[in-house]
Amino acid sequence: MTDATVITREDQGEADFGDYFALLKPRVMSLVIFTALVGLLVAPVPVHPVVGLSAILFIAIGAGASGALNMWWDADIDAVMQRTASRPVPSGKVEPGEALAIGLALSVMAVVMLALAANILAAALLAFTIFFYAVVYSMWLKRWTPQNIVIGGAAGAFPPMIGWVAATGSVSLESMLMFALIFAWTPPHFWALALFMKSDYHKARVPMLTVTHGRRVTRNHILGYTLALVPVSLGLALTSIGGPVYLTAALLLNAWFLASVIAVWRRDEPSAKADSYKVEKTAFRVSLYYLFLHFGALLADATLGWAGW
């Protein structure tokens, strides 16, 4: 390597470890870790702490790997969107080929290690999740249909099911309802975001519902999907993992989220613009609490069960 080469690399902004870590989408990974951990802990089969820790780690690495593959594929979209322009690939810190190699290597490692640490079914579900997010969502749905968020949301819904399967070795009604909870929650969550980030998606030519069908239709869809979400949330209370804490939390959180979504639905564009999408931003924030507290309540009921209550 010559001095000239070194200077060229420096000008491109040679990446440090944090830039490579950012490829794994740490914020998304934290949600994956939390929901997978809850899925694993509420399962009726006790798991050795080392096996449980390993399973969660490999699920998280698998999710991170699919994030790296998504960043490799979507670098052109990320570059024009203000929210994502500083990501490692569009900012030039990490080469696209490096992102691809890291994504593929970590995917294989995470799936093989999860099979060894937990079981084959959990590993197969993780492999399918990575495939679904990187190929079905990123390469196919995202640029093709405004239903991208609806179908692609399945990728984010798998982690609690994988955690459950890592503990029990099989898929059950409880794990399917945890999947359905995140699956039905994803569209209103992302469409609320899209309402106040429209110009970004428009610039990137991503067919978000706001771009293809307008904001009135998006507001209607947000309400529709939230209404579909309510029975899933309450249904989970009737299963073996539901309890008094979960039932109380589900009732309160559904009332809170519905109220904020109805406020979004009743608004028109001029009034939303007038206060810089305050109500839409509130609904987006409430949606985050909604999911986090639902899974927190499941964990609280499991903890009460261990304590013998």
């Binding site: 070194v6 420096e10 990446a15 470890f17 870590f21």
Partner: peptide, 14 residues
């Protein structure tokens, strides 16, 4: 150099 710091960060992290 700044470059060395970044490389060290990468190597230590890996």
């Amino acid at each position: 150099h700044e470059l060395h710091r970044r490389r060290f960060s990468r190597n230590a992290g890996v």
